[in-house]
Design a protein around this nucleic acid. Structure first.
Lengths: 152, 152
DNA sequence: ACAATATAGTTGCGAAAGCAACCATAGGGG
DNA sequence: CCCCTATGGTTGCTTTCGCAACTATATTGT
């Protein structure tokens, strides 16, 4: 029987678990809007930041494969949360916009984010919250940079 | 067209992207051992910490559903990385142990973890690495506690 | 001792996501 | 102008994962 005692904990173990539990949390809280957790990030990107993005741009901003973007947009459209218009300058591009239905629920959607952040950072000082954001986005930048150095 | 300018970034956006890219990284680096990224965490938990755990214990430690544990263990067994023995005190329990084949690749597996940590924390001071670990595991504890307060 | 409940593990199902192959359109070079 | 390559989007396939339902064994209360 193997027993190595305490190892230095790796980042990815915590990140994986936080990710999965957060997805479950989001899923539970948006079910009533008939949105799945897979569509959530796309809708909120369009709603809280800017819409009129192409699917390619959405994929890039969210770091999600463009195949998923296509499928998520289709589901959001079917539920009436987004619509798209062709780009008059490039017939290949679909520009995605939020509908009035999305705007109607904007505040409620925002609350889901806020509540999740609150749960995750319970007991954090405001400074710790800022440090967390900083470190997380630096890690993300690091792995994005690593991937592009590998030609991805 | 909606355009809200800069919002305070949420933790989950970074965590999701880091998670997915890390999974891709792990997948690429363990493919040659015929292990999928879905089995990786189970194998390393057994190998780097302690084996002889039941599937229930594995699920709890890794915060992964027990159905996944059952499937991952089955795949790892099929590839010869683990075997199991019944618990003589409780005929329901399967205790999972690593094989010599796992031990043979232990150092290489460990290297995959180390390299990923190195990529993610590139440019971090040793203190920042420690802070990151601390904050991540506190976030994990927070959401675990939240869930148990909800009766999960 | 036996019925009721709890625990460990398995299986079926559906959602999410990446990859590869593909189609359509755009843009450049001969 | 036409071929060649690049870009944007779609579809098929596979893996991962959570949930719910199920089976089998253990435990508890009467």
């Amino acid at each position: 029987m193997v027993n190595k005692g305490q190892h230095k904990k790796s980042f990815i173990k915590a990140i994986s678990a936080i990710y999965r539990y957060s997805q479950i949390y989001i899923g539970e809280n948006i079910k009533k809007y008939h949105i799945g957790k897979g569509q959530w990030s796309f809708l909120t990107q369009l709603l809280f930041k800017a819409d009129g993005l192409t699917q390619e741009e959405l994929s890039e901003k969210l770091h999600i494969d463009k195949a998923n973007t296509a499928r998520a947009v289709k589901k959001l459209e079917a539920e009436g949360y987004v619509y798209w218009e062709g780009d008059p300058r490039d017939a290949r591009k679909k520009r995605i916009y939020v509908t009035g239905k999305s705007l109607e629920f904007e505040e409620e959607f925002h609350q889901v984010f806020k509540n999740l952040n609150k749960i995750l950072s319970k007991g954090f000082t405001e400074e710790e919250r800022e440090i967390t954001r900083n470190l997380l986005f630096r890690m993300l930048d690091n792995i994005v940079e690593y991937r592009s150095s590998q030609g991805k």
